[in-house]
Design a protein around this nucleic acid. Structure first.
Lengths: 219, 219
DNA sequence: TGTACATCAGTGAACGCGCGTTCACTGATGTAC
DNA sequence: TGTACATCAGTGAACGCGCGTTCACTGATGTAC
């Protein structure tokens, strides 16, 4: 009986070249930003001619979309993995997120940075983004819900659709949202260098914001 | 006696063309993002040849730097003006900031979006950024300092240099910092469209985050 | 007020570049009998 | 195991494009006497 999943040598080779192309693409993005990404430059680095890449990607746009997809996938997997480690809590997610961002800032910005006007991500990418939110919701749902309700909660109660049936109480949704926006706020300013001349340690500020989020002490 | 500030017709004309160039540049950025900005395209829109622009700007980089400077200047002035209106408080600053960002999202991202690796803003631009922080510090210094101190405060106490001698208590510095990072967090995700399919009203979430910042109610 | 000269905005041609992408092809690898 | 054929990775030439930038120039505007 033949395993339909088994890869022929040719398939393995194709897959390998595709990842080599992406590796070089990430290098370029890290060095000069996503707008500088060039198919011809990648081909040159791989020692092949430009047109050869069209065996692997339909064009520049398809490659970029795949990079965005991989970035989201990587983030979603990283957070899921962190949440599954024994004793994992909201703080563990926050630290995993920061580590992931610092690992490759331009990868972070490819997802959360300046949007290209008119661009809309395909549905499967949006789905991965929902996975990320679901991981956050799981973590906050497991937390004791203390503190008074927010004025925002009533509004959110009527717009929980995006939580996609997640059983978490509305207050947990609100806290997961704040987790995302606040940590993104610090993180993106740090990565963009806006704290550079300021002297304080961004990691400590991040930790303080996290403390306030978890209720482990007011900031 | 001659007023040395008086502008000759030629100077007035030059100034006018320079702003027309920038107006077109902002249009391009709003439409296709800053990386798509093209001197030749601007010249065409103005009905002149490409090289003509070199009478007004040394090159593409100088133009972009000037756009960044103008953006910062506009933000600093907007916030200062808001803070000087009678009865102005921290909330007024927050609303002015949000309105400014929504007015031209790509202008916001030119300052706070994806950084270009290796680019460093000239000193005079950094100085305008400090003006913005100073306005925030003024507003928070005027607020009664309630709530317990943060674990971060001790660290910040030793790194207040960036506040440039501002008399605000350290807790006010911390709160101004959180004001900036949290509001930037929501705002940038909203502008980038990350809330798009989620259903809730970003303005309400923004307001709720603001409430928690001012202590007008826990979020 | 009129003339001579200097200043300066804008042009058109040109340079060199790298981009994404297409096309017809060569030659190696894999498949079927 | 050997031969005939199909598949497919990669090449090199070419297309058209728009970019930033330089250069020598024309012609209009302003200045000095």
């Amino acid at each position: 009986m033949v395993n339909p999943e088994a890869k022929t040598p040719r398939e393995r080779y194709r897959a390998q070249v595709r990842t080599e192309i992406k590796d070089r693409a990430w290098e370029q993005i890290a060095t000069a930003g996503a707008s500088a990404l060039s198919l011809n430059a990648i081909a040159k680095q791989l020692g092949m001619s430009g047109p050869a890449l069209y065996r692997y990607y339909a064009g520049r746009d398809e490659l970029i979309t795949e990079l965005v997809r991989d970035a989201y996938r990587s983030l979603a997997d990283t957070l899921r993995a962190a949440s599954r480690r024994p004793g994992a809590d909201v703080a563990a997610l926050a630290h995993a997120m920061r580590a992931w961002a610092l690992e490759d800032p331009q990868r972070y910005f490819l997802i959360f940075g300046t949007p290209v006007p008119g661009y809309h991500a395909p549905d499967d990418i949006t789905a991965i983004a929902s996975e990320v939110m679901a991981t956050l919701l799981d973590a906050f749902a497991a937390l004791p819900q203390k503190g008074p309700a927010s004025s925002f909660d009533a509004h959110l109660e009527e717009h929980r659709d995006w939580a996609d049936g997640h059983p978490a109480p509305t207050a947990a949704l609100r806290r997961a949202l704040a987790f995302w926006t606040r940590l993104h706020g610090t993180l993106s300013l740090e990565l963009a260098g806006h704290f550079d001349g300021m002297g304080f340690d961004p990691a400590r500020f991040y930790a303080a914001e996290l403390d306030e989020l978890t209720g482990d002490g007011p900031m």
